[in-house]
């Protein structure tokens, strides 16, 4: 497993397009959200920004890389080559996915750490860790499932789209005041800067009134 993971890591760092997708885009988007955190905090909350950052990194960095890596390795028969060795299927799969997963964990940890320094420590670090681990596990599972129905790396541009758009849409939706009480939003919200229940009720009231 580890030799496969090591070779995948080498390939990621030698492939410019994967490097851009895995590193540059997530970091750039996250940097933008952190830089503009005051603006986004007024629209949603700091927890909302943390969630956006986490999903951006895991979707672009982990989910997309998992799908394209697995499909590419299968299409160019590298997967068959690996299965010609004594390595087990689970070991091969883990080795292929491990580098992108580790990179995603490091990215999320660093970005959230920077976010915490800029805006203050999260209220519940334990819950935040659970949220990160669950999100990473979800993205790996979605990546494996998507790779199963994707024929070519080019085809992945289409098959991976629903998850990418779905994540963006759901996070945009979570910015609406009525949905801001998700575990991640609460956990990520820095202590002392979490919107009060009264303010949440206050924002929700007009929506109820419009029904």
């Amino acid at each position: 497993m580890l030799p496969i993971a090591r070779s995948e890591l080498v390939q990621i760092f030698r492939n410019r397009s994967v490097l851009v997708t895995s590193f540059v885009i997530p970091v750039a988007v996250s940097a933008f959200f952190i830089y503009q955190h005051d603006t986004f905090a007024t629209i949603g909350s700091l927890g909302y920004i943390a969630a956006i950052v986490m999903f951006t990194v895991t979707v672009f960095g982990l989910y997309s890389t998992t799908v394209t890596t697995l499909v590419d390795r299968r299409q160019n028969l590298f997967l068959k080559r690996l299965r010609s060795t004594a390595a087990s299927d689970s070991g091969i799969l883990t080795g292929l996915v491990l580098p992108a997963t580790a990179i995603a964990f490091v990215q999320v940890a660093l970005i959230l750490a920077v976010f915490g320094v800029v805006t203050g420590a999260p209220e519940n670090v334990g819950l935040l860790v659970v949220a990160v681990v669950a999100t990473v596990a979800l993205m790996i599972a979605l990546g494996l499932a998507t790779a199963g129905i994707t024929r070519t790396p080019e085809h992945a541009q289409i098959t991976a789209l629903p998850v990418s758009l779905g994540v963006i849409a759901s996070r945009a939706g979570s910015a609406s005041p009525a949905r801001r009480a998700s575990p991640c939003s609460s956990a990520c919200c820095p202590a002392g800067r979490r919107p009060s229940s009264s303010s949440r009720r206050g924002r929700a009231a007009p929506r109820s009134a419009t029904r």
């Binding site: 030799p3 496969i4 030698r14 590298f78 060795t85 004594a86």
Partner: peptide, 23 residues
């Protein structure tokens, strides 16, 4: 194998070391 199936971003030495090692 009948068809290649190697990672194009690995060197020749790295490829033999990887597949040979996993054997």
């Amino acid at each position: 194998l009948q068809e290649s199936g190697f990672a194009s971003d690995l060197t020749v030495r790295e490829s033999v070391a990887l597949i040979g090692g996993l054997s």
